[in-house]
């Protein structure tokens, strides 16, 4: 069939809000864009485990410890669901993982910042998960069926993540002066990187238009970022800590908060690999993967042996 006709049919299908499924015809660029986006999303979940896992062994109470452990584990699960969604498009997880390990694949820049205090774990839950949820709620309606279903499951599971982070922040802000200072310091360090999570501004985001046309994305980076700021301001107020942005103020006319300019030089540098923890994060993933190789090989060898035995017996 003529590719033009196929493309037209595809776009009509998408415009009618019908999902695209794995075996349906799709433009190669749609497939590749999805593989890239879904695998980056999966990498972000898996790399995102590391800064938080840092504090599992140091969690200050057993209740906090199990909550954090369960949360970080969920991220492994979410990475897994997402890799699975990418695999429906013909990618192989092992190849995607190799790309992460050799530094050629990207993941969310936020995880290249260090977790220095316990309050950082609260701030990550509150801000980073808060930002992620805004993006993920939108992606529940993405046009690719397996991605959409993975996001629905992820959103359901993540509903406790932001709450646990915010509760942690509340406890700190109602605690000793040292604890409150710890919370403020965490907000100071995580606020701007959280805003950067939504990516470049719309005018610097050339791929966005196509993603919107194909309904992979449903809202622009700047719209999502604005949602996040609007959500966060009253939450910070309840905590009694200050968002580190002197330009932050309510704009009656727009019905939104105005906010200051993001340091895009920092953003692009962290993306390029120059963030405070890029090297450690990739190194940690690589080490885990390489240390696990003999384990994975052993299981395959055992399965092969068993299959051969069954064959011989038959």
């Amino acid at each position: 069939m003529d590719i033009g006709i196929l493309e037209k049919g595809f776009q009509q299908h998408v415009d009618a809000e019908k999902k695209i499924e794995a075996k349906d015809w799709m433009p190669e660029k749609y497939r590749n864009t999805l593989i890239r986006q879904i695998s980056q999303h999966a990498h972000s979940e898996v790399v995102g485990m590391l800064p938080e896992a840092n504090w599992i062994t140091r969690a200050p109470s057993l209740r906090r410890k199990v909550a954090l452990l369960a949360k970080v584990q969920d991220e492994a699960g979410h990475g897994l669901y997402l890799y699975s969604a990418a695999e429906t498009l013909g990618a192989e997880r092992a190849d995607l993982v190799e790309a992460l390990n050799d530094g050629s694949a990207k993941y969310s820049s936020i995880f290249n910042y260090p977790t220095l205090t316990w309050a950082d774990i609260g701030a990550i839950g509150w801000l980073v998960d808060g930002a992620a949820i805004i993006n993920q709620v939108m992606l529940q309606r993405t046009s690719y069926g397996p991605y959409s279903r993975a996001m629905i499951r992820i959103c359901k599971e993540e509903s406790f993540h932001q709450r646990q982070g915010y509760e942690m922040m509340l406890t700190l802000c109602n605690g000793s002066p040292e604890q409150k200072a710890m919370a403020q310091d965490a907000l100071n360090r995580w606020w701007w990187p959280s805003l950067m999570m939504f990516g470049p501004t719309d005018k610097d985001s050339p791929n966005s238009a196509l993603s919107m046309k194909w309904k992979i994305k449903r809202k622009s980076n700047d719209e999502l970022r604005q949602d996040f700021v609007d959500n966060s301001v009253p939450q910070a107020k309840i905590l009694g800590i200050t968002i580190p942005d002197p330009d932050l103020k309510w704009n009656e006319e727009r019905g939104h908060y105005d906010f200051g300019t993001i340091d895009w030089e920092e953003f692009y540098n962290v993306i390029k690999g120059n963030g405070p923890c890029n090297r450690q994060r990739v190194e940690a993933r690589k080490t885990a993967w390489e240390k696990g190789r003999w384990v994975r090989d052993a299981a395959v060898a055992y399965a092969d042996k068993k299959k051969n035995k069954e064959k011989d017996a038959a």
Binding site: M49, V72, A76, A284, T287, V295
Partner: peptide, 10 residues
């Protein structure tokens, strides 16, 4: 719990 995030496979 030390191994969380560092397992041989997800």
């Amino acid at each position: 719990s030390e191994l969380c995030g560092h397992g041989p496979v997800l």
